[in-house]
Simulated assay, not measured.
Amino acid sequence: MSFNDKARLDTSQVLGGKGGAIAGGGIGSVVLLLVYLFLGGSGGSGTLPFDPSQVLQGGSGSSVDVSECQTGADANRSDVCRIVGTVNSVQDYWGDALLDETGEPYREAKTVIFSGSTQTACGSATAAVGPFYCPADEQVYIDATFFDELTSRFGADGGNLAQMYVVAHEYGHHVENILGDLQAGQQDRSTGPTSAGVRIELRADCLAGVWAHHAATTEDADGVTLIEPLTRDDIDSALSAASAVGDDHIQEELGGGTVNPDSWTHGSSEQRQRWFLAGYESGTIGSCDTFGTDDL
Rank of each mutant, 00 (worst) to 15 (best):
G72R: 04
Q54K: 15
V140N: 02
Q139C: 08
N4L: 01
Q251K: 07
L99E: 15
D248N: 12
Q271S: 12
L254I: 03
G24N: 11
S63P: 00
V87M: 06
R77S: 14
G44S: 08
L239H: 07
G59Q: 12
D234V: 08
F291T: 02
N177D: 15
F147L: 09
V129W: 01
F291C: 00
F50C: 01
G257M: 06
G279A: 02
R77L: 07
D137H: 05
Q251G: 03
C81A: 03
R274S: 15
T151V: 11
G267E: 07
D222M: 05
D137W: 09
A168S: 15
D188C: 07
I200K: 01
W275K: 04
Y93G: 04
S117T: 09
A215V: 15
G185E: 04
G72E: 05
G19R: 10
D148E: 14
S115L: 11
H266W: 01
L99G: 12
T126L: 08
S195P: 01
R153T: 15
T265W: 00
G58Y: 04
Q187E: 14
E281D: 15
A21W: 14
V112I: 15
D92M: 04
E149V: 12
G25R: 13
R232G: 15
Q251H: 06
S243P: 00
H174A: 07
D148K: 14
I285L: 13
P229W: 07
S2I: 09
Y165Q: 14
V167L: 02
G223C: 11
Q54H: 08
T102Q: 05
L296M: 08
P229N: 10
S62K: 13
L239T: 09
T217S: 14
G116T: 10
W264I: 03
E201I: 04
A7H: 03
P49N: 09
